[in-house]
């Protein structure tokens, strides 16, 4: 029987959650025995090759590209996990949510104390995904099945959740593995 497939993505995140997944030490060899990776930065597969058992999403949605990827994950993954504080509550990127988008852009590209931008250009290339009005936690965009809080969730948290889900068991994390920092 083919191994179940896992896909991962980093949206508006810092890749810290992916680093935490790599931090499972030698259990990474067991992980490779348990699953194949589909679309993921881990193997650099850019588009889904088919349906996946588990999708792991790091980061919330700050632009239209994030929304497209997240919806693509929901379409292809049986189980979708919001992994880390950015995915579950917006995280550091969501600090802009209390400030209008125009003010954020002006501060970053025009008014900031270290900005050098003599032509006063705001990034507007067609290749750049449009920013959303604010940063959205994943569950406000698609249905999310499991939440793993933490910044990042510890390697043990990720491992225990993955092993439980791959074994069709409920995710029951002990006290010390649910942390918000």
């Amino acid at each position: 029987m083919a191994k179940p497939k896992v896909a991962t993505a980093s949206l508006a995140g810092c890749f810290g959650c992916h680093m935490s997944l790599l931090d499972i030490d030698d259990r990474i060899l067991k992980l490779i025995d348990l699953v194949d990776f589909d679309k993921s930065p881990v193997d650099d597969i850019k588009e889904f090759t088919g349906p996946c058992r588990i999708g792991i999403i790091e980061g919330g949605c700050c632009n239209e590209e994030n929304v497209r990827v997240l919806r693509d994950f929901r379409k292809h993954c049986d189980i979708l996990i919001a992994c880390g504080d950015c995915a579950t509550m917006g995280g550091i990127p969501a600090m802009r949510n209390t400030i209008p988008l125009k003010e954020c852009l002006d501060e970053a590209y025009l008014n900031g104390p270290t900005v050098y931008n003599p032509q006063k250009i705001l990034p507007n290339d067609k290749e750049l995904p449009l920013l959303l009005n604010r940063v959205y936690p994943c569950q406000e965009v698609v249905k999310i099945d499991y939440f793993l809080p933490g910044c990042p969730p510890s390697a043990d948290t990720l491992w225990q959740a993955l092993v439980a889900l791959l074994g069709d068991k409920p995710v029951e994390l002990p006290y010390e593995l649910i942390k918000y920092d």
Binding site: M89, P149, I178
Partner: peptide, 12 residues
């Protein structure tokens, strides 16, 4: 044992 709040964030 709250993994994430069930309500939408207000960002006040």
């Amino acid at each position: 044992g709250i993994a994430t709040p069930r309500y939408p964030y207000q960002f006040p």
